[in-house]
C-alpha cells in the first residue's frame, strides 16, 4: 500500500506488469515524436520565431523607429494622427510598444517578406496580432528581429496581451496588408 513502506526489502527487482511495460514504451515513443517535432518544424515549417535580438537603449530604438517612419510615411490613420508607414517590399519594418500604443501603423504587401523589428520603450508589452493570433513578448531594452511574411490581406489588429498598467486594455495598433 502506498501509505505504508513497501513490504519487500528489495522491491527494485520485482517484475513489472505487462500493460505497464507496454504503456511506458508507447508513451516514450510519443515523447520522442513530440520532441523531434520542434527541430523538424525548424527545418520544414514556415512558422519559426527567429532568436535574433540585441540589447538596445529605449531612446536609441525610438530614434530608429521615428527616422524610419518619417522616411516611409504614406498617410495618417483616419483622424488619429498616427502615421501609416509603407516600407519597400522585402525591407525593414519597425514597431514600438509604449504606454499605451503600438506605433506606428504599418502597411505591408501580401506575400512579401519583411525584417520586423520590435521593442518596448517602457514596460513589458505583449504583441498580439489578430485575428492571426501570433503572440510575442516584448521587452524594453531588447530589440527583436524576425522575418514576417503576410499570407493574407486586410486589416489586422495588434493588441497588448501583457499587463502594462491601467491603460493596458486600450493599447491597440494596426497592420494593413494590401493584396498585390
Amino acid at each position: 500500500m502506498a501509505i505504508f513502506p513497501p513490504e519487500q526489502r528489495v522491491w527494485w527487482n520485482e517484475p513489472i506488469e505487462k500493460s505497464e511495460v507496454m504503456w511506458i514504451t508507447i508513451a516514450f515513443i510519443w515523447a520522442l515524436v513530440m520532441f523531434f517535432m520542434m527541430p523538424y518544424w525548424h527545418i520544414v515549417g514556415e512558422q519559426n520565431l527567429s532568436n535574433e535580438a540585441y540589447k538596445i537603449k529605449p531612446d536609441v530604438y525610438a530614434e530608429k523607429v521615428e527616422a524610419w517612419a518619417a522616411k516611409y510615411k504614406v498617410r495618417e490613420e483616419g483622424d488619429t494622427g498616427i502615421p501609416v508607414v509603407h516600407p519597400p517590399a522585402g525591407g525593414d519594418v519597425y514597431m514600438l510598444g509604449r504606454l499605451w500604443e503600438w506605433w506606428p501603423v504599418v502597411e505591408l504587401e501580401e506575400g512579401q517578406s519583411y525584417r520586423f523589428h520590435l521593442s518596448s520603450l517602457d514596460w513589458m508589452h505583449g504583441w498580439s496580432l489578430l485575428p492571426e493570433n501570433i503572440n510575442i513578448q516584448v521587452h524594453p531594452g531588447y530589440e527583436m528581429i524576425f522575418t514576417v511574411k503576410p499570407t493574407s490581406s486586410g486589416e489586422f489588429g495588434v493588441i497588448c496581451n501583457e499587463f502594462c498598467g491601467i491603460g493596458h486594455h486600450t493599447m491597440v495598433g494596426k497592420i494593413h496588408v494590401v493584396a498585390k
Binding site: G78, G126, S128, I159, N161, E162, H169, T170, V172, K174
Partner: peptide, 17 residues
C-alpha cells in the same frame, strides 16, 4: 480566438483604434 489574458475590456471601448 486570441482573447488576451489579464485584460479588462475586450471590446476596446476606450481605445483610439
Amino acid at each position: 480566438l486570441g482573447v488576451p489574458r489579464r485584460h479588462w475590456d475586450m471590446t476596446f471601448a476606450d481605445a483610439a483604434m
